[in-house]
Design a binder for these strands. Structure first.
Lengths: 141, 141
DNA sequence: TAAAAAATGCAATACGGTTGCAGGAATATG
DNA sequence: CATATTCCTGCAACCGTATTGCATTTTTTA
C-alpha cells in the first residue's frame, strides 16, 4: 500500500486535487488502513486535525471519486480510498460486510457488486451493497 | 393495498403484535404509501403523534419483521411495510433506488436483490442494496 | 507586493435518533 | 369488584454525527 508523502501527493495531483497538508494526511491514513473509516475514526487517527477540515477533505475526495462512500447502516458513513480510476464501474466495486456485533465494516474484495438492470428512465450513478450479520471473528452471534 | 382498521388489526395480530391505536395508525400509513418512509415523514403524516412513540412502534415492527429497514444513504432510515411473511429471504427482497435530486426512495419491485456467496465464516442476516442516481422524473440531472 | 482566492480551525448549530420518566390505559390477580 | 401490575404513550431532555458560518492563515494570482 503506497504511503509515503510524495507518492500520495502524486496520487492527488493525478486526480486533480491540490495536495495540501491535510489532504495528504487524510489520504495517507486511508491508504494505511485498508478498510473503510468513519469521520470519527479519522479524527482520532489524525488528531489534532480538525473534524470540519477532515470532513471537507472527504467531501472533496468523494466529489472527485477518490473515495468510495459506504453507508453500512451504522450511524456513521465510512470512507474507503479508491486507487484505481476505473473502480467507479459498479461491477468493479466489491461488497462490504458489516458485523453487527463488533461493528466493523469489512471489505470483501473477492465479491464484486452484482449488477442489476434498472427499468427505463433511471440514471445510475452509484450503488451501495452492504451485507450484514456476524463476521468470522464474532461467530454465530 | 389494505387500509381499513380491522384489516390492519388482523395483520398485526397475525404477526404477534398487539394492535394498539398508535400501531394501527403507523401500520396503516405505511400501507397507504407504497414506498419507504422515514421517521420524519411519519411524524408529519401522523401529527400529532409523538416522535418517540412512532419510533418505538417502528422499532417493534422491525424486531418482528413487519417492516424492512432501508438505509438509502440519505441521513435517515426508511421503513417499508412487509406484508408477506417470507420476504425475509434475501432473494425475495427487491432493490431500492434513491434519487439524489428529489431525495425519494423508490421500490424497484421488479428487480430482486442479487445474492452473493460470502467467504467461509460469515453469518448473513440482512442485506442492503440501494442504487443511486436520478429517477425518471428528475431526468439526467 | 498587493489583492484575491483557497484552505483551515474553532465554535456553533442542525438533525435524526434515542432514552428517562411520569401519567394513563389495559390487563391480570386476588 | 378492587387492586396490583404491566404495558403504552407523550413530553422533554439528551446524544452522536454531520454540517455550516466565520475569522484567520496560507497560497495563488495579478
Amino acid at each position: 500500500m503506497k504511503s509515503n508523502s510524495s507518492e500520495v501527493e502524486r496520487f492527488l495531483v493525478a486526480r486533480g486535487v491540490k495536495p495540501t497538508p491535510n489532504r495528504i494526511l487524510v489520504a495517507k491514513q486511508l491508504m494505511i488502513y485498508n478498510h473503510p473509516l468513519s469521520l470519527a475514526d479519522l479524527e482520532i487517527e489524525l488528531d489534532p486535525m480538525d473534524r470540519a477540515s477532515i470532513f471537507r477533505v472527504l467531501e472533496l475526495f468523494a466529489s472527485k471519486d477518490l473515495v468510495h462512500v459506504i453507508e453500512d447502516g451504522s450511524r456513521s458513513v465510512k470512507y474507503e480510498i479508491c486507487l484505481s480510476v476505473d473502480h467507479h464501474h459498479i461491477s468493479d466495486q466489491h461488497v462490504h460486510f458489516y458485523c453487527e456485533k463488533c461493528k466493523e465494516t469489512i471489505c470483501i474484495e473477492d465479491v464484486k457488486v452484482p449488477e442489476v438492470k434498472l427499468p427505463e428512465g433511471y440514471t445510475l450513478r452509484a450503488v451501495n451493497y452492504v451485507l450484514k450479520g456476524f463476521c468470522p471473528k464474532c461467530g454465530k452471534g
